[in-house]
Nucleic acid binder design. Structure first.
Ligand SMILES: [Mn+2]
Ligand SMILES: [Mn+2]
Ligand SMILES: [Zn+2]
Ligand SMILES: [Zn+2]
Lengths: 136, 136
DNA sequence: CAAGCAGTTTAGAACAATTCTAAAACTGCA
DNA sequence: TGCAGTTTTAGAATTGTTCTAAACTGCTTG
């Protein structure tokens, strides 16, 4: 399992207009070959370094931004200076545990948001984010 | 409220446990003697400098943080490195115009959020933030 | 109202997160 | 195999914010 290249990932990257380089594939595996996750640039960098796929921090940032721009990831900002990259790009919302910085998904299909006003004129809806902040 | 019978800002600051210094009163007036607003530290600093109440940037940050901690302001984080301080501390939500960084309030009383899951165990609800992201 | 002290302000240093730079290393392709 | 374009990288730079330590000011007390 380790070391083998996953052709699906390479294809997925190519389809996103990104060359499947060693670094990008390594990061993509860490991100997409497991359950949905929420990583920071620092945490992913530490993880890559700990395994044996060292990737520079600049490349981690570049890659996360590219993946996000390609729609492979979504970025969630919960607090000043705390940006998470989320492998779950479908509709869902978040619990943010303020006391320890943890972020948890919850599905949006049982949540109903009714009565939202129309967007300011001249604007188009992009996304509705719900962040439920909790404390221990 | 900021109308005819101008509430004594000095009293308000004292009640918050803050000495009504020249700088704090100047910033409080800019913030609370007009309609609700959303400022950044930079924008408030620029505004103070442009009027004739120059206040150091460090003091602007200190003051905004103190006002927030005292419940006079609330902080809204919408994008990496973009923290707004909001003079509207009541229940309400936001439109964020991603294309130009503008933040607009909308009342929460007509919005219904139903079916939110229970907070993760061991945690207590702190606040629910809804950010409606739109683009021009 | 003067002294004194805690609380406050300030410039500038320090920091943390992120982006930029420019040179070296790759990749895909002719 | 050579080459052009792309990617990676270390380190510098930038940005937003906090910290430091010295100067200053608001408030209390004598
Ligand atoms: Mn970014
Ligand atoms: Mn803060
Ligand atoms: Zn998520
Ligand atoms: Zn607001």
């Amino acid at each position: 399992m380790s070391g083998a290249t996953n052709p699906d990932l390479a294809v997925r990257l190519r389809e996103a207009g990104l060359r499947p380089t060693r670094q990008r594939v390594a990061l993509a595996r860490a991100l997409f070959e497991v359950e949905h996750r929420h990583v920071t640039a620092e945490s992913l960098h530490a993880e890559a370094k700990a395994g044996r796929n060292p990737v520079s921090l600049a490349t981690v940032y570049n890659t996360l931004n590219q993946f996000r721009d390609a729609g492979l990831l979504r970025e969630v900002v919960v607090a000043p200076g705390r940006s998470y990259f989320d492998t779950n790009t479908g509709h869902h919302h978040h619990f943010y545990v303020e006391t320890d910085g943890e972020l948890h998904d919850f599905p949006s299909d049982k949540v109903t948001i009714a009565g939202l006003p129309a967007p300011p004129k001249g604007t188009r809806l992009s996304r509705v984010d719900v962040i439920v902040r909790v404390r221990r």
